[in-house]
Design a protein around this nucleic acid. Structure first.
Length: 536
DNA sequence: TCTGGGGTCCTAGGACCC
DNA sequence: TCTGGGGTCCTAGGACCC
């Protein structure tokens, strides 16, 4: 265990909602909910104004609307969040090469590996200032000797926290925490621990190791035994290989039997797009079916060789769905692709492969491989752009190297016969005309005369657009009938510095001010100049 | 007012091999 | 005829994270 508190955890406060209020000035200081807007939507993020009404993440949107009827409910705009996330991560990488993103809005940084090794507190302070000055987003920061402590520290004073827990303060800080604050203790484990009379980390530390292992299992028991002692040697690691990719969809209304194959193709198409992005192939296709009574069944099919062939993966998915055999109406369908590799079998396997497949998994697998060839030339293993493997070289080819193609040329759209209009498409091309089917509150649009804005309300093809952006004052609203007037859906605005900020807020100001007031740039002496970039 | 979507990891049981 | 035990792979479910 290191001596200095040089592990930093950075967490953007109510991230999705904060990006929204940054880009929609009229929403500043008003309650905002971001999440599913459909009948079965849940809240992804509630800003602090909405939390004041009791709204929380993961709550059903219907409930949140009841709690806070005045809240603006926005459809998530992932491209905007991804752009802000990238800016945050890039900024952190200026402070250390060891940055481990945990999600779009969270990261661990090992400051001991960078220029702030001798003064991690200064590094952490700079991190929050740089992020604020470049994006207008406020983060909470925690510093500790381990990930465990850093994470708890960033959580200690949200929003806007800046908490340093040095070694000598660690026990004092840790032992008071409820066990549920520990990463790895969710509702189920919390209940189990409560039955043992364990509520705080102090209780947990007093517990017998054997009892923890007995009641929670080998891994979880040991893990909590160590965490209770502040023993967390997990290093900050830059990148980890993805183990699976997938997609799932909850339907507005439960699906009947006959609707399942089409819906499965839809979900599979999205999963395949992610596989395509990952590059290479997958061996196992897992289909998840959630019934109307919320019971969930998963069935999986594993093929002999990793593949990126649409037909073969679709066949596997259909087989898994059949095995799941849903007898009730279905509310959710999911497809996960695992056993990922950076290469994939795209052509007829060699006789040796078929033999191996037969031995490994019976005749159905071998048949699947054969059927997927469609009379194309025999061959072969495809390299990804990143990591060609020896397997490729070792694999005999009868048609020559000309048969080699990028795995990313797989025709994914062949798996998706549904409308190109769907908002599900996470790789849609913009700009594109707004249609009755693509109106969603929160989306970015532009009008030839009025410029860029966002959809504030929508009903039956009639949309109200508020024309404003991150660099403007709150703007006016205008209403259009999208069947008669052209509105273009456009990409979200890029992240940008907050307006009218001429000096970095001091640590004291950052800690004292509420986020909305700060975001307005109410620093004394502020003018209309952009924020200086202290890194330059 | 019923409960999203992207993932990771763990457990337990069965098949199979040696 | 009955019975080992370890290792690996696969599957299904569940807990957990954000």
């Amino acid at each position: 265990m290191r001596e200095d508190a040089s592990v930093m955890h950075v967490d953007a406060d109510s991230f999705f909602a904060s990006v929204e209020t940054r880009q929609k000035p009229s929403l500043a200081r008003t309650p905002v909910l971001v999440g599913g807007t459909g009948p079965r939507g849940v809240v992804a993020t509630a800003n602090y104004e909405a939390r004041a009404y009791g709204c929380r993440s993961a709550m059903s949107m219907a409930q949140a609307r009841v709690l806070c009827p005045t809240a603006t409910v926005l459809t998530p705009r992932f491209p905007a969040y991804a752009a802000h996330s990238a800016l945050i991560m890039d900024t952190l990488r200026e402070l250390s090469p060891l940055v481990q993103p945990v999600s779009l809005d969270e990261a661990f940084v090992d400051l001991a590996a960078g220029p702030f090794a001798s003064d991690p507190v200064a590094g952490a302070d700079l991190a929050r200032r740089l992020i604020y000055n470049r994006s207008g987003l406020v983060v909470s920061v925690g510093l500790g000797r381990s990930k465990l402590i850093a994470k708890l520290a960033s959580d200690a004073e949200k929003p806007h926290g800046f908490t340093v827990v040095t070694g000598d303060l660690e026990d004092d800080f840790l032992l008071r925490k409820p066990v549920a604050a520990l990463s790895g203790v969710g509702p189920a484990t919390d209940t189990t621990l409560r039955r043992l009379g364990i509520v705080t980390v102090a209780h947990l530390r007093a517990a017998e190791r054997d009892e923890l292992v007995r009641t929670l299992g080998e891994a979880a028991g040991w893990n909590l035994y160590r965490l209770a002692r502040g023993d967390d040697p997990r290093p900050v690691v830059v990148e980890r290989e993805a183990k699976s990719v997938g997609a799932e969809r909850t339907f507005a209304e439960d699906l009947r039997q006959w609707e399942l194959p089409g819906a499965l193709d839809d979900v599979l198409a999205r999963a395949l797009r992610r596989l395509q992005r990952h590059g290479g192939g997958a061996r196992t296709v897992t289909v998840k079916v959630r019934l109307s009574d919320f019971t969930t069944v998963t069935r999986s099919v594993t093929v002999a060789q990793p593949t990126s062939e649409v037909e073969q993966l679709r066949e596997a998915a259909r087989g898994a769905l059949t095995a799941a055999n849903p007898t009730e109406p279905v509310r959710l369908l999911g497809v996960a692709l695992s056993g990922l590799t950076h290469w994939a079998q795209l052509r007829l396997p060699t006789p040796e492969d078929v033999e191996t497949a037969s031995r490994a998994d019976g005749q159905s697998t071998a048949t699947g491989l054969l059927e997927s060839t469609n009379g194309r030339p025999p061959e072969l293993l495809l390299p990804s752009s990143e990591s060609p493997t020896d397997a490729l070289v070792a694999h005999p080819s009868t048609e020559g190297a000309g048969a080699l193609t990028e795995a990313t040329t797989v025709d994914v759209d062949a798996a998706s016969p549904s409308s190109a209009d769907s908002l599900d498409d996470d790789e849609e091309r913009l700009p594109a005309p707004l249609t009755v089917h693509t109106c969603s509150v929160g989306l970015d649009v532009a009008h030839e005369a009025y410029g860029a804005g966002w959809i504030a309300r929508t009903a039956d093809g009639v949309v109200t657009v508020r024309f404003e952006g991150p660099g403007t004052e709150p703007g006016p609203e205008r209403t259009f009938d999208v069947r008669r007037e052209l509105l273009m859906r456009i990409a979200p605005p890029a992240p940008c510095p907050p307006r009218r900020l001429t000096s970095l807020p001091s640590t004291a100001e950052l800690t004292a001010a509420a986020p909305p007031a700060l975001a307005e740039g109410d620093t004394p002496g502020s003018a209309d100049a952009p924020a200086p970039d202290p890194s330059s």
